[in-house]
Design a protein around this nucleic acid. Structure first.
Lengths: 185, 185
DNA sequence: TTGACAATACCGTCCAGACGGTACAGTAGC
DNA sequence: GCTACTGTACCGTCTGGACGGTATTGTCAA
């Protein structure tokens, strides 16, 4: 019972992300999402009573997924910064990811930026506490933010080789500055 | 005559950016823009026959303004990279800038990303030709992209002091790598 | 074991309102 | 008298969401 509910919710959420990517973030309609998810509009509205609740779920699942993956990667041998760099690299190398749905949520209501901003700030503070060179950390943090931004907008500005080179440089800059770490490349 | 037309156009363009920022990028309506600009809807549609043409103008003016400012900053004493870093810093420190309108255009139609991506790629290639250390350049380029992204979404993740520190670090990383003097554009 | 009922998970229809866009008559200033 | 609008009225379309209906599954007393 929870199985069916879960899969239906997930289908809707990924359908929403797909529609947002194809039609444009501001052109996400419930009808289109329902059609994409193979669900009737009534069914969609059963799972998400309002459009706003769908958007909220889109943002929340994205953030919690990311945090879980980050915590999973952040093991003993990898410092948080290295884990964050590598996770971001993997995410940006993937063919598609759920961030386009987040963009749709923001287009719908700019208030959705608040939890995202809080999340980012919390992450930066965590990174800050593990670094000795705040200046370099900031540059790396911003560079990852930039990489994610380019990916988010699906503008293929960088080639995959350039992205790899950028990640390599970041690890080189960041590795030496990580507190108590045996950072490997 | 061109004066009046220009000021009216500009009023509409900045009004569109304001509406986008306040209501959300995906909630930009012509009625709201007209009201904001102190112009009738007829007047707006006289200047911009379709919504798409308004969006196009929003993107174009943003890109051309940026390129003009960059070329103006890029003097003999300042290399292109330094100029780009400083210009980005100034832009991100400003209370508001026109990029929110660009976001609205993207929300309306993802195709508007194409000219933006082309612009970014051209800029990166120009920077590339003036640098000896492509890895560091990429990190700086991405960091500026990230800074602009944070500003674009108006998420005040970084304090102004942190932003200054980041810029300082970028200049430090980038300055030594800049290929001196005669740069062929 | 079965029949009555209830909760879940949808479907299909309908509608008020918002939106982009058109048309056009009027007018202020150069 | 032309340019550059204003103001209003209107149309067709789309959208979010409300609502009533329904099939399936689960629960529980008799």
């Amino acid at each position: 019972m929870t199985q069916i509910k879960q899969s239906s919710r997930d289908k809707i959420l990924s359908a929403a992300a797909e529609v947002a990517r194809e039609a444009g973030a501001g052109r996400l309609s419930l009808d289109a999402v329902a059609a994409r998810a193979g669900v009737s509009k009534g069914g969609l509205l059963y799972n998400f009573p309002t459009k706003a609740s769908l958007m909220r779920a889109l943002v929340e699942t994205f953030l919690t997924n990311f945090e879980q993956e980050l915590d999973a990667s952040h093991t003993a041998q990898d410092g948080l910064l290295s884990a964050y760099i590598k996770l971001s690299a993997i995410e940006c190398a993937e063919a598609q990811h759920g961030a386009t749905g987040v963009l749709a949520a923001i287009a719908e209501d700019p208030d959705f930026l608040k939890p995202i901003a809080a999340f980012k700030r919390r992450l930066l503070d965590r990174l800050k506490s593990e670094s000795d060179d705040f200046g370099s950390l900031l540059v790396i943090y911003l560079a990852l933010e930039g990489m994610r931004s380019l990916k988010l907008f699906e503008t293929e500005v960088l080639t995959s080789e350039e992205r790899d080179l950028a990640v390599e440089s970041m690890l080189k800059i960041g590795a030496g500055r990580e507190r108590n770490s045996t950072a490997s490349l």
